[in-house]
């Protein structure tokens, strides 16, 4: 792996650790949003069990969205992005590192906390495992797609809501297969197809999204 990749990954993770209070806010947001639904739909256990996976997924999607603008904006303001663009390495290398660091610091914690929420929705232990596994495969896709939007909306007024409008429709397939995997497992259809499709989606996103984000960053900085 290249030096620039490791340098950026280490730095961004260090920064995430130094500003861990911010990350806790995003994580709390995830928990709060997911806890709101029972107040809206009632506390019928069967109903909650039915909507649980979908609610956790939507909350994870929104929490990812909340954290997305931070992926590039600080480095954009401070001039670090300019320096990175002038690195000998192709931009896609360090863009990948930034996305990886972003997922490790914002996506992975969501996966870790999700069983707790699943418990609150009365999911069975095995369903909880499936949900966490689906989130583990799905949240990197969210970060990858989100990176494109974050790069395109960098420095714009109202970037947050614009970002939501741009990337949420693109994230719908992940939501469908992610939440669907739990239902599929529960109804006895089996997980294989869902997980394979999500895995395929992850590889496609890994192969394409860093390039699109790098191109978007170049355009934004032009």
């Amino acid at each position: 792996m290249s030096k620039a990749f490791i340098a950026v990954l280490r730095r961004d993770l260090l920064l995430a650790w130094r500003s861990r209070a911010d990350l806790l806010v995003a994580l709390s947001f995830f928990v709060v949003v997911a806890s709101l639904f029972p107040f809206g739909v009632g506390s019928d256990p069967d109903q909650l069990r039915a909507i649980g996976p979908g609610v956790v997924w939507v909350a994870a999607l929104l929490a990812t969205l909340l954290a997305l603008p931070r992926m590039f904006s600080q480095d954009f303001d401070s001039g670090v992005l300019e320096q990175l663009l002038l690195s000998q390495e192709p931009p896609v290398v360090w863009v990948s590192a930034k996305i990886a660091a972003h997922w490790l610091s914002t996506g992975l914690p969501l996966v870790v906390v999700s069983p707790l929420l699943a418990l609150m929705y009365g999911l069975k232990p095995s369903a909880i495992e499936v949900l966490a596994l689906a989130l583990l495969i799905g949240t990197p896709i969210l970060s990858l797609i989100g990176a494109i939007g974050a790069a395109l909306t960098l420095g714009l007024r109202g970037a947050g809501s614009l970002l939501a409008l741009l990337v949420l429709p693109l994230m719908v397939p992940v939501l469908i297969f992610g939440a669907g995997s739990v239902d599929a497992w529960a109804s006895g259809i089996g997980l294989r197809a869902h997980l394979l499709l999500m895995g395929g989606g992850l590889f496609a996103a890994l192969a394409l999204a860093p390039f699109a984000s790098a191109a978007a960053l170049r355009i934004t900085m032009d």
Binding site: A4, A7, R11, L14, L15, S19, S78, L84, L86, Q88
Partner: peptide, 21 residues
């Protein structure tokens, strides 16, 4: 300045060199 407020000058400088190659 291309410096991050949360990092020390040393970390910032080391990162700038490493990222540039």
């Amino acid at each position: 300045s291309a410096l991050n407020d949360l990092l020390t000058p040393l970390e910032n400088l080391h990162f700038a060199c490493a990222a540039a190659g």
